[in-house]
Structure formats: C-alpha cells, structure tokens
Design a protein around this nucleic acid. Sequence first.
DNA 1: TTGTACGCGTTATCAT
DNA 2: ATGATAACGCGTACAA
Lengths: 338, 338
Amino acid sequence: MKTDAVQARSVPTLEMVAALAGVSRATVSRVVNDSPKVKPDVAKAVNEAITTLNYVPNRAARSLASRRTQSVALVVPESTSKVFADPFFASVVQGIAMYLADTDYTLNMIISSESKPEKTRRYLLGGNVDGALVVSHHSSDHSWSRLSESLPIVFAGRPLTGGDSYYVDVDNEAGAEGATERLIAGGRRNIATIAGPQDMPPGIDRLTGWRRALRRAGQGDSLVEIGDFTPASGGAAMRRLLERGVPIDGLFAANDQMAAGAYSVLNEHGLRIPHDVAVVGFDDDYFGATVAPALTTVHHPVVEMGSKMAELLVGLIAGKPTERVTRLPTSLVIRNSA
Amino acid sequence: MKTDAVQARSVPTLEMVAALAGVSRATVSRVVNDSPKVKPDVAKAVNEAITTLNYVPNRAARSLASRRTQSVALVVPESTSKVFADPFFASVVQGIAMYLADTDYTLNMIISSESKPEKTRRYLLGGNVDGALVVSHHSSDHSWSRLSESLPIVFAGRPLTGGDSYYVDVDNEAGAEGATERLIAGGRRNIATIAGPQDMPPGIDRLTGWRRALRRAGQGDSLVEIGDFTPASGGAAMRRLLERGVPIDGLFAANDQMAAGAYSVLNEHGLRIPHDVAVVGFDDDYFGATVAPALTTVHHPVVEMGSKMAELLVGLIAGKPTERVTRLPTSLVIRNSA
DNA sequence: TTGTACGCGTTATCAT
DNA sequence: ATGATAACGCGTACAA
C-alpha cells in the first residue's frame, strides 16, 4: 500500500522550487541562470526556496535542453599516463582543475588508448563535451588536431609539425636564451649545452635559444651534445663533452634532470661547480632543487600552463576570438650553480 | 530562406538510426543496450545503421531517462593537488582511469577546496554522479564519509578514526613486518626504524609491523625515531638514532624518501650499506631506485590500488555486496641495501 | 516581468 | 519480439 502523497525524492527538482516559491518553472530557471529580467523580490523568494530545498540543477536535463554539456574532456594518451608521477603532467592537470573549479565546467578525464583511438574520437565527437584539453607526454602529439574543426581543443605544448591548433607553451627559446645570457654575463667564454632530443619541440627550441644567445655574444656554438632528458643521458653527454678535450667553463642543460646527470660527471672529473664550470638548467623541478650546489635554472610555469589552457578553452567555447599560440614567459631562478 | 529538407545535424540521433534501419526508436534503444530480446537480423540491421551514421548515444538524454549518470567523481582535496607531482596521487589516478576506461563510466575530476566544501558536497549529492572516489594526500581524510549514506564512495587508504567507509589500502603492517624480517634473516640484531608521523595511518601501521616482527624474534623495539616522510626528516632521524650511541646494524625506513635521507647521514658517519647497516625502505618509488646502493624496499602497488578502488565503486553502484576493507598485498623488492 | 508550452534524445511502460 | 507513447528535468521562444 502506497500511502505517500508526495514521493520522497532524493533530489529536488526545479518544479518543486517553483511550487514552494509560488512562481512558474520558467521563472525559477531564469533565476538559476541569473537572467537579468526578473524582479529582485521574486528572485529573492526563489533563491530562498532553492536553499531551503537544497536544490541543485540536474546537469543532464540542463545539458539536454541547452544543447551544451558544461563539461570538457581532459585527454591523456595512455603512454603518457604510464609515465608514473610525471611532474609535468601532474602539475598541468592541477592547473587545469583549479581553473575549472571556479567555473561551472566539469572535467572529464579520459585516457585514450593508442591502440583504439576510435573510442576517444567518438566520445569527443558524440556531443558529450563542449571542448577538450590534450596533454600528451612531452608536448608534441597533436594527432587529435583534426578534431579541432568540430570541437574546440587546446593542446599543451607546440606541435612538432606546423598545424594550426590552439596551444599553450612555455617560451622555451627565450628561457634558454636567458639562461645562456646568465652564463655569458658571468664571464664564461666556453659555453656548452646538453640539448634535448631534436625531434621534440622543447629539445629543439631550447637549443635554438642557446644558439641565439651565443651568436649575439659573438661566441661559438659548437659545444653541443644531445641527451634524452634523463639524468643518465645528461651524464653521458657531459662525458662526451669533456672528452672533446677543449675547455668548457659554462653549461646549459636543457632540463634539470640532465643537469643533475652532468653534475656527477663533473664531480668525477674534479671540476667544481660553479668555480670551474657554471651550470644552468631548465624546468625548475625537484632535481634541480636537491642537487648540490643548488642549480640555477629556468622556471617552467607548469601549473600556469594548465590554467591558461583551461582559460583559453572556456573562451573558445564561448566563441571568444583567441590567438592560436600562447607562450608563457619563464623566469630565471638564481641559485648557486651559476 | 531555408532550403534544407534535412537539417545538417552534427550528431546523429537514435531517431535517425531508427529511420535508416526501418525500425522504431525503442528497438534501436534495445540494440544499443544489448537487450536480449531482439531478433538477430534486426539487431544486425540496426548495428549497420549505427555504424554508417556513426551514431553515438547522447549521454545527457540517456542519463536523464535512465536516472543514472554513468559517471563517477574523483574527489581531490585542494591541499593534495598542491603537492606537485605526488607520485602516489598520480599513480592512483592512473589506476582509476585505466580501470574505468574499460567500463563506460566517465571520470569527473573535481578538486574540492577545503574552504568551501559545500560546492563539492552539492555536486556529489546533486545527482550528477553515480559514485565517488576520494584520494586525499596521505590516505586518511575521510571527511566525506558521511556522504556514504547517500552515495557510494570508496576511499584511498584507511581512515584515521574508525568509521565504516569503504576503502582500499595497502597492507602496511604486513609489508613493514616482511621488511623487518628480511633484516632479521640477514642476521641483524640491532634493528632501528625511522617511522612516519604517528597521526597518519601509514606511519602508524608501518611502525606496528616493524614492532611485531621484532617482538616475535625476541628483539628489542626501542630504536625508533619519527620523521615526516621527507628525505630531510629521514636524515635528521638517522642522526638522532646514531647519537644514541648504541649499536645499529639494521634500519627499516617507513618510506624510500626517508631512507634516502638516512643514506646521506650514514655515509657521513662512514657507515657502509649494507655492510655496517642494512637498510630496507617502503614504497618502491623513484628515490629508492636511484640511491646507491640501490634500496631494498617494500613495493607499494599504487596503480593497483587505483584500479581496485574503481572496481569496488562500480560494484557498489551495481548494488553488489562488498567488503568495506580491501587490503592489497605488498612484495619485497630485493636490491643491494639489505 | 512572468507564464505557457514545446522540445532536447533516451529509457521504460505498456500494448500488440 | 516490436512499436506507441509517456516520462526524465530543464531551457526558451512566444504569448500575455
């Protein structure tokens, strides 16, 4: 026997609010979406009803009616997610999440398996999100860029190949240039670099920045060895540099991890930092902070990158005119190595 | 002038599929949700229509009609998210995401600001998700546990205070016990520990495990110093341990980071690892892998923790009977320090 | 300024 | 086994 006059619904509906406030559902809807045209006192009454009922708009219904989802996808290639505790990735996501927390967009994290990208593709195009943020491992995979035609997408890091996608990147060139200038200003005349992979934008751009500073200062730019951004590769590169038998009194490492690797080799060879060789890194991560002497390095604003991406995406969704390229400035963190 | 007979809709609807397949919407819906009662040939025809149209069900509509969202929330306290690149957090999330990728649940990441928890609360109770996963920094914040009555929730790590929430944890006690047994089996008779904070479950449990092993072996358990899980605190604790002036030939550090800190101090004092002092850590993270000699440590199955959490939550949502406590086994990673 | 009424794309309840 | 048809909760012309 059902004795209930009013069903004990778990969540109140707009209709119930309307009833309590003595207005129509349309008016409640207007108040919820703060439409300009609703009398202050009516709005007040509605809001009271809302709070007493603890009403929360149903996203699904709202989305269905308004034809937009108020949620964005965070696309993470599976290979990226496998990189346990990649500080870059974690921080970018943090920036994204924190920015979105102040909007009423929801963040849908989807890890896309490279083997069957169709699932992701369909999800994105299925009208389930209003836009997407793509963060791949080392900022170069724009394989989703074709979707940009159908859906606002913002990438982390500039693409390897031209393309015309929207992306946010740190100004790698300028950062590397500044790092190198620091070495030059310190009186160093034989400045080497341990560059990153030359098939990755950060690797390429940081090498370019180093070159630019050197050329402008009229110094040679032949002391280059390539690493793969790991400490071990940094050590190996440093070793090759020293084996050349030419003097080296300054080093710009394309990231802190390689700088840390170089430290060990420098120590092995009895070279003192910064006395014999001044060193500057890039990224300002854990590695640079824990080596001794503490590494002077280029700060990479990773969290800001994330929030900027989110900001741009929200703007794009709103139809706001937006520059395709956003380059965030770096800053030099002066510590003891240069 | 509108000349279009058929509106160029971006995404096809169930209705369009029905038309193309020559059946009713109801039937298409049945096929999509693979209901058992639909003739094979009809189903085939529908599926063909689906693929040619590239149809994707609209989540919002589906959710509205079915009264369930097919999405779960990942709740991250803001303070946790601030811990840049916390490997623990990143890996748990990876596990969660990877498990969910094989279901058709969507993961809604929401970072909840401690200052206004109401927003999160309302979101969770507003019927926007079918369940929630809570990952706080060091596995103890169950402040959301009260919501468990209204919504399935699974936590990472056991709560500090009793409570009756569902949670997944690594078996810290057993892990620590095994680590200590390794030291005992190695003939060590003066085994110290650098414990974690005693107001955090992992800190407490790992100390308990150490004690249990020692007592069972009839050895004393007074060589205890507390750290806060950072390398620096590990170094400081080690120093205090040595200052006691009593012999120490074995050390169990409650995590790898503190073990790394202890390494430095041990080196300073001219003590060789493992010759003079055998060391075992806990977590099996980056720190333990990079110190020299490589650290013998207890493997913490972090990714598995995440996937297990997701698995349990999906089960709970489906109404499956579930144990409140799930403890994942650890394993000892034998390297060179013990 | 406010209310009426229709539609958003699915699922679910009935018939058939 | 399949098809009408009524919800689902909300936004939004359009009317008043």
